[in-house]
Amino acid sequence: MAKKIVAVTACIAGIAHTYMAAENLKKFAKKEGYDIKVETQGAMGVENRLSQSEIDAADVVIFAVDTNVQEPDRFEGKKTLKVGTSEVVKDGKSAIDQAIALIN
């Protein structure tokens, strides 16, 4: 079964990099055959919100954030990769690979 990734993206202004990082994570997760759902915490607030069951079912979590994750309690006990949004925008593949390396 395909590995399941859940991710949260958030940048300071919440206008551009939040969404660029989200898109790049999806792009490279799909390329490598993983399931992914990305919650964006931007200027529009929380979108594509991860349910607790989705988080519980995930193999690994990626926080691509330049600021605090909202409601971090939801992710307690999960294996989590924390990176900045720029890193993910620059190299989405590397972020996905690093996350998968945490569970392999």
Partner: peptide
């Protein structure tokens, strides 16, 4: 991307977020 300082208009933000996503294409 030039934004109003306090913009409560979600339509504006939606347009910009779509553009941002497109930049990864």
């Amino acid at each position: 991307l030039i934004m109003p300082l306090d913009d409560p208009n979600k339509e504006h933000l939606t347009v910009l977020s779509k553009l941002a996503r497109k930049l990864m294409d």
